[in-house]
Structure formats: C-alpha cells, structure tokens
Deep mutational scan, measured.
Amino acid sequence: LAALHAEGPLAGLPVTRSDARVLIFNEWEERKKSEPWLRLDMSDKAIFRRYPHLR
C-alpha cells in the first residue's frame, strides 16, 4: 500500500519516495501484461521525473 496526500494541491500523489516506488511498481506490473518489453525503473531520477514534488 502507498500513502497518498489526502487533500490540497498534492491530493492523490505519493507522500514519500517509497510510496512512489509502490505506485510505479503496481503500474508496471499491470502494463507488462500488454507491453512485456517494458523495463521497471524505480530510480530516484525516474521518481523525480514523475513526481517532482518529492525532490
């Protein structure tokens, strides 16, 4: 499970980098069924690119 911001401008976004990794992994797991070539990237760089508020 990932903790998400409940309200405000960040509502629905992950609270920590660990939470972001959970979301990225879950999405990758779903997408790899139809796109088996996808690589999993959970590096800090990938997290910041996707969720800049975690910098």
Rank of each mutant, 00 (worst) to 15 (best):
L1V: 15
L1I: 15
A2S: 07
A2D: 06
A2E: 06
A3I: 14
A3H: 15
A3M: 14
L4I: 11
L4V: 14
L4A: 05
L4K: 07
H5L: 05
H5M: 06
H5F: 15
E7M: 10
E7D: 14
E7Y: 12
G8K: 08
G8E: 06
G8R: 03
L10R: 04
L10D: 04
A11K: 15
A11L: 10
A11F: 12
G12V: 03
G12T: 04
L13N: 03
L13S: 03
L13E: 04
L13I: 03
V15T: 05
V15L: 10
V15H: 05
V15S: 03
V15N: 04
T16M: 05
R17M: 15
D19I: 03
D19E: 06
A20E: 01
A20T: 00
A20Q: 00
R21C: 12
R21L: 11
V22T: 12
V22D: 03
L23Y: 05
L23F: 05
L23A: 05
I24D: 00
I24L: 12
F25K: 09
F25H: 08
F25N: 05
N26Q: 14
E27D: 12
E27L: 07
E27Y: 05
W28G: 01
W28M: 02
E29C: 15
E30N: 11
E30D: 10
R31N: 08
R31Y: 04
R31A: 09
R31G: 07
K32H: 13
K32I: 14
K32Y: 09
K33G: 09
K33L: 12
S34T: 15
E35L: 08
E35I: 08
E35C: 11
E35F: 09
P36V: 04
P36K: 07
P36H: 08
P36L: 05
P36F: 06
W37I: 04
W37G: 12
L38M: 07
L38T: 11
L38C: 08
R39N: 11
R39A: 12
R39H: 12
R39L: 12
R39P: 13
L40F: 05
L40C: 08
D41L: 04
M42K: 03
S43Q: 02
S43C: 06
D44C: 10
D44I: 11
D44P: 08
D44L: 14
K45H: 13
K45W: 12
A46H: 10
A46L: 08
A46I: 08
I47Y: 01
I47H: 00
I47P: 00
F48I: 10
R49Y: 12
R49L: 15
Y51D: 00
Y51L: 06
Y51P: 00
P52G: 03
P52Q: 03
P52W: 02
H53L: 01
H53C: 01
H53F: 03
H53K: 00
L54A: 00
L54M: 04
L54S: 00
L54F: 04
R55W: 11
R55N: 10
